[in-house]
Nucleic acid binder design. Structure first.
Lengths: 213, 213, 213, 213
DNA sequence: TATGAATGAGCCTTCATTCAT
DNA sequence: TATGAATGAAGGCTCATTCAT
């Protein structure tokens, strides 16, 4: 009602207690969204997990959508920051570094990763754009690695962008089935996938058409 | 007729008109689930798409969950049937046949494929099991191809199951970004991915560790 | 969610039972809005009055706002229709006819009248416009009576529009304090106000300024 | 000072800053109540207008209801005080004095006046009584003017109380439509209404029944 | 088979108010 | 005096589903 002025929300300056609650909201929402999907999770459930009444959530996030947006943007920011760190620290060839980093990070942060590509469609267009920018930034890392490696003759890829998507899809699929404590360690997974990737982009071996028939 | 005993009266005998409505329900639900996700789609929306009131949907499917289950089981059955046909008709080496088949089918039936792995978690456990059986059956096809090829020395894979998942994840990721009319034709995609897959499983080229440093 | 197609509501074709429920919703809402004001009345209260669950209200009115709009437009339509009938039937001079009609109608339909000018600001702008058009139409009736009477020398008003508003405000204020069974009958009220109005617009007696001091 | 007993500690001693905040709360609430209605205005909106957090309002007014009560009682007190002053200062016959005063005051304090008769029903019964007493006191002024004038033969009213209500309703309706800068000045309005009122209560002209037919 | 109408549960969000800081 | 954080109740509305017609 009241066809009057727009209310300017003006988020309050957070105190220690509030920051902790916000963190617990994030954590509860992450878990629930990953398990049941954004649309199937209610603010009531999140509040119950946090140990707070539903209304209190709105002291920390203006809407449910903002929780999702926060989780996804935070995830992308942390992913990129982690890569920045890894790409400096680890001494390997860039492709190996990327593959190992990606697998490790995606197994450690399975929930974040999962919602980050499962819940894209539940982002309002504006928020979707924000996340997409970061996602493209991440993919560009691998594309550049493949392009540079190709120039140096180390790799041979016909289309670096297609190869990027192929590799990332391949690696990102891991947490969907990998379970700790199975007969494959995380190290095994890294090694197996690294080998597949390396061979896929290796030069000097055009196998196409030859084996047909 | 009037004297036949023991009719199964639970669902009415499907007649022409009902059959068609049911088909339109499936089609509308498929589109909506793929676009917005199972949880975010209401029976009212589906009914509106079909041109019918919500209550009428219950003449064709007992619950919303049953629509999802129907879509996913039908999809898996058709996928496997299509493979049976393709594996007989097409004259290529099995890996190429599988890769080309998978890409083609997944681009043709993008919605079915999409919900089939996005909505798994929205299946009730019982229905989930039914679908999982089919999914494993499909994966087993590629695993067997890789195993037989390995025995024959054509391919070299350290773990055929891991390779299966890697390859399927890679291929299944295509519809997420591929758009008809872009600079790559469907044939281009098939060729590019086929090459990546072939090299990934090619024998005689252990690239590991060598390029490091 | 679901950033997709617009849902076209398509109101159902009403059946007898539904029409009765809708009528009871209107009646309950009328009573409550008049007593407590639109903003202070909840759909739950209306539903309880009607003897139905809140959700059922939405089978008959798309929103709470639509109930208000319906009540106000219906009221204006009925008011104008009643005037059309009265202006044909009753044999009096036009001003008397209007005054007696207005008082009688406004005492009979106290609730409708009351919300019709108390809840104007709770109408969304679009609905407000619809109601305003009718309101102006009603006022025009009195304005025209005063103008014609002035031309004939029966009345003397300096500004027929201002006089219209003055008279209508005066008459409309009656239900705010008049209570049946007090020492004044409805007929008394009619006569008293008619006399005040007649004198106010009577010609041949310019009292201005003379009595000052 | 430090030793004075029996402080009334309920509300803190109003200091400069607090005084000013309270004034701004009154002013914001007045504006909002007039625009949207008491029930449709939230404490959060008022707080935002004032530039303060909702909780801070409770340092100045114990409840939202108290703000309304404060506004209405203050208004009535100021109205009566203004009349006391006007009735001494202005040299005119009492009826003209009252009419001009009422119109002027009601146009100057449109918001106060508006909520004072629109929000009566949102007053809790106890507060309603307090305001009603003042309102009756104000009406009594006009009633007395009419009665005295009648005794002196200056006016002829059949029922001074009814005439009071009729006149006040008529005058009070002005701010609902009058807009500054239109083709009528405030002075024009005063003159037009004064004339209408004078004629309505003028003696020696019984127009009833004569014009009929 | 389809419909209008209803249910009962639940949804996201807002509210007036409280209170430790 | 003001604030950030919380409460408990309630708000309008939507949902999957049922069922007499």
């Amino acid at each position: 009602m009241a066809h009057t002025a727009a209310k300017t929300p003006v988020r309050p300056q957070p105190r220690a207690k509030g920051q902790e609650t916000a963190a617990r909201v994030r954590s509860a929402a992450l878990r629930r969204f990953a398990t049941s999907g954004y649309a199937a999770v209610s603010m009531r459930e999140i509040a119950a997990d946090v140990g707070v009444r539903p209304g209190a959530l709105y002291n920390h996030f203006p809407t449910k959508q903002d929780i999702l947006k926060d989780l996804m943007l935070t995830h992308m920011a942390e992913l990129l920051a982690a890569w920045d760190k890894a790409s400096v620290e680890e001494k390997m060839d860039p492709l190996e570094r990327f593959v190992r980093f990606h697998i490790r990070y995606h197994l450690e942060r399975a929930d974040e990763v999962f919602i980050s590509y499962m819940e894209l469609r539940n982002l309002e267009p504006q928020n979707f754009e924000l996340v997409e920018v970061e996602r493209r930034r991440y993919e560009a890392i691998l594309t550049k690695i493949l392009e540079r490696g190709s120039e140096l003759g180390r790799y041979a890829v016909d289309d670096a962008k297609v190869a990027t998507r192929a590799i990332i899809a391949m690696l990102t699929g891991i947490p969907a089935w990998y379970r700790e404590g199975g007969h494959l360690s995380e190290k095994d997974i890294e090694d197996l996938y690294l080998k597949l990737v390396r061979k896929a982009v290796a030069p000097g071996q055009d196998t196409s058409q030859r084996e047909t028939g």
